[in-house]
Amino acid sequence: MNFNKDTNQAYLYIAPAVILVSLICIYPIIRTFIMSFTDNDGLNPANFIGFDNYIKLFLDPNYIIPIKNTIIWTVLATVFPVAIGFLFAYSIQFLPRSNFFQILIYIPATVSAAAAGVLFGFILDKSGLFNQVLALIGFEHLNRDWLFRAPENTYSMIGAYTWQATGINMMIFLVGLQGLPKEPMEAAKIDGAKGFTLIFKIVIPMIMPYFVIASLLALINSFRIFDSVWVMTMGGPGRYSETLAVTMYREGFIIFDLGYAAAVAVLISLVGLVFSYYYLKSVLTKEDVS
């Protein structure tokens, strides 16, 4: 490997970033990975216990609910924000003053998940706005404490999350739609394509790379969902709305079984890493093409 002055200079430029990422990101990842093979409790010297924490995670019946909830979150919190985001993006472009609607739909994405959780805690409460609206439109029989009953609480929280996550997906699709060449669309219209045919046969295939990016991003975020759940239900009642990330926090910072919490964190990270790999691959491929 030849190093010239320019190369050295380039290394110097990126050195601070590399050092910072190593300290803040890589080092904790390695520590967490090592910790996952120990019985670390934050007080006593940790002992190596092999794969015990991982075996516990997969064999303990108590962890079926978090795993099931995480899967529900991953599927629904990907499908809804992406699908609704696309619908908004596609519809908005035909509206006058579309900028206003873009801002309106994007605003929830600027609210922190914790703040949104508190807000929806009030909305979904027994006497909250959601039940009041249901009663107003004649569906009073559906009134309930949405965050207290399972599985309604998980679906309600996914609804709240969708409200927040739709804006960013809409923006991704707007970029994609604005970059579409006009000719194939016009040709399809001349050939009689309209409505859903035009959307499903022409528009969606043409912006498929944006669907992949939006979906993978949503998958990564929903698989590790923590803040919304913690603020709204703390994973309860009775652990019925717990997700894997909540399990990790609960084991780590409430029970202080740090070794076990680290094993859950490693599992979440590995799945996130797989999604991230495909996400980056699709982003980088798109950049190469452009």
Partner: peptide, 16 residues
């Protein structure tokens, strides 16, 4: 603590 933290979730299931 290990019993108590899990027990409150179990007892919550009874209340539900």
């Amino acid at each position: 603590t290990e019993i108590c933290e899990a027990a409150v979730d179990e007892i919550s299931k009874f209340v539900l």
